[in-house]
Design a protein around this nucleic acid. Structure first.
Lengths: 337, 337
DNA sequence: AAACTCAAGGTAACCGGTTACCTTGAGTTT
DNA sequence: AAACTCAAGGTAACCGGTTACCTTGAGTTT
């Protein structure tokens, strides 16, 4: 591999001059010298050694995608949008898949500091409520090492993030069901979302606004996967006074509810309306296709990347961008029977 | 940030000694010295600078995942299995999403050489047949720069790879349909797979073996997405002598066929059997659930990573590992009516 | 006692760049 | 003509490690 020393020798100049030419420095260079150096670089098939550059300059042009899983459309679509934005700006992304383990998350944080990443796009892993503490420690550790952070998926103090107005999303979904005439609306929350979670608040506020009383028997929580959607759906439907509609806080659980309905021979949407949260190809292809609250995923990814790039370009200010979800109406909801 | 110079000063030793202790070199060190250095490292909250290490040692402990897309269960599951294996061995992965563009693929190859990655796990992007040439150039370029490669998804000379016996998979799927009594079996190939593609050969051989003549009207090709599955399915079904079963060469096209059947009011599996290739949660959740040829995805990912790690540990030999697919029987196939 | 061995550590070149500061000399200003 | 300016380039320290080769002296071998 040719180095700038080889070029310098070939052109009878110093490495400083070579470096200046190759990096487009604003230090003045004679056009002849410039041409000579560029020629030599081409002739020697010179490639800059990014590692050496990083060591000398303190910038690695590297960012990390620190996310709970990649086997999931949600993260994957966000990741793609980010990667687009970042690779255009000359950055490359480390794939840091925590597999929903705060331990692995912490290990990655250590590793990333060691590797001097310029920034990280972070969606904290939170399986148990107390994981929150670890999340905060990890953020602290990154900040202490002057690594730029943009978070999404959770709210934290003092760092930039892109958020989605999930309260509004849940509110709108619930409101939509009410408009269809539903009065008994089941709600399947996530397990780690406290009772003050945005989605639950949206659900409750929409009901209250219409003077519909909150029935705790209609509110339950699952762990976000298909099976728990099925189980919780069964529980809700197997009561004396079952709901006529169910709103699940994510996609897979809503599909689980669809399965539960099928198992109980309830026709969706004629006998049961179902709404999910988060969109994916699954919601579209499932039968019946699923009405969902869609988060603007591409926009989230692109925005997170842009926020990070702003920071990397020297803007220090912490900034939260909140995006609005939209209700995608498909075939899983209908007027109450 | 503390450096080994700080530790050396604190302990009154040279940086050589510090480096030896910190890296577990086999150069003998007095236990007292070792303890002193480890203590100092802890006290100073020392973290090695991976960039400096990389420059000095020539190894970055970095590998690249160069894949056509990440918004796809297939790649995503492979990526996760790889990442597992690699992170355990102390490597970290760059996410290089080519978005099915050979241009982006070439750009990444340049970038990766520049970044001195130790290896790349490569699934070449091939949208048009002539992309193959670019793929080969990219492989050459990597090899020229002594970067280890393991490929999957396509076959190339002279590099290690993990392959799946897709011929066998297609053969078995077709055979299964024949055993169910089907004689007219439609086949939807990919567009870039030539007539000598493994899957098509498997399909044809299974038919021939049973003395069933090949009807070219039953063979067509789509571009692997849902819509083309739908369109090609409609075409096949809208003939005088339509097939009683359709085998599509990937998952989404098979689901497209399911849609086509629904559009034509054909009951699956009673009036039409459908088989797909590649498994995913979609195939399981779609109604009816889809019988598919499943590639052993986790095993592929893990194997690719292991092959690469072997190379990184000094084994030079090119090795191809071929894995067997399995037929996952679900609800989309039945005896011919 | 001379020769040898080896534990324990040090010296300094090297990996491939960047950049603050310095030098030189031709052209311009006063 | 002295003082100044600035284009064009060079010097050398620095980023933070690794490692081949050398040194020293205590213990062992003959």
């Amino acid at each position: 591999m040719a180095t700038i020393y080889d070029i310098a020798k070939m052109c009878n100049v110093s490495t400083a001059t070579v470096s200046r030419v190759l990096n487009g420095s604003d230090h003045p260079i004679h056009p002849d010298t410039r041409d000579k150096i560029l020629d030599a670089a081409k002739k020697l098939n010179y490639r800059p050694n990014t590692i050496a550059k990083s060591l000398a300059s303190g910038k690695t042009h590297t960012i990390a995608l620190l996310i709970p899983t990649i086997v999931n459309d949600y993260y994957t679509q966000i990741a793609e949008a980010m990667e687009d934005e970042l690779s255009q700006a000359g950055y490359i992304a480390y794939l840091c898949n925590t597999k929903r383990s705060v331990l692995k998350e912490a290990e990655y944080v250590e590793n990333l500091i060691t590797r001097q990443v310029d920034g990280v796009i972070f969606s904290p892993t939170r399986v148990k409520p107390e994981d929150n503490i670890k999340n905060l420690e990890n953020i602290e550790e990154l900040k202490k090492n002057k690594i730029n952070i943009v978070a999404f998926g959770s709210r934290f103090e003092g760092i930039s993030q892109v958020a989605v107005d999930t309260y509004k999303g849940a509110y709108n979904a619930t409101r939509y069901l009410i408009e269809l005439g539903h009065r008994r609306i089941g709600f399947i929350d996530g397990l780690t979302a406290g009772t003050r979670g945005n989605r639950r608040r949206g659900y409750i506020d929409a009901l209250k606004e219409e003077g519909i009383s909150i029935d705790d028997n209609l509110i339950t929580g699952g762990n976000l996967d298909l099976d728990s959607g099925y189980t919780k759906g069964m529980e809700l439907l197997n009561t004396e006074n079952p709901p006529t509609a169910i709103f699940a806080v994510n996609n897979l659980m809503a599909i689980g509810v669809l399965k539960a309905a099928r198992a109980m021979d309830l026709h969706v949407p004629r006998e049961l309306s179902v709404i999910g949260f988060d969109d994916s190809i699954l919601s579209e292809l499932i039968e019946p296709s699923l009405t969902v609250v869609r988060q603007p995923i591409e926009e989230m990814g692109a925005t997170a990347a842009k926020l990070l790039l702003e920071q990397l370009n020297g803007k220090e200010d912490v900034k939260t961008v909140t995006l609005q979800p939209t209700l995608i109406k498909r075939d899983s909801c209908a007027c109450v029977y």
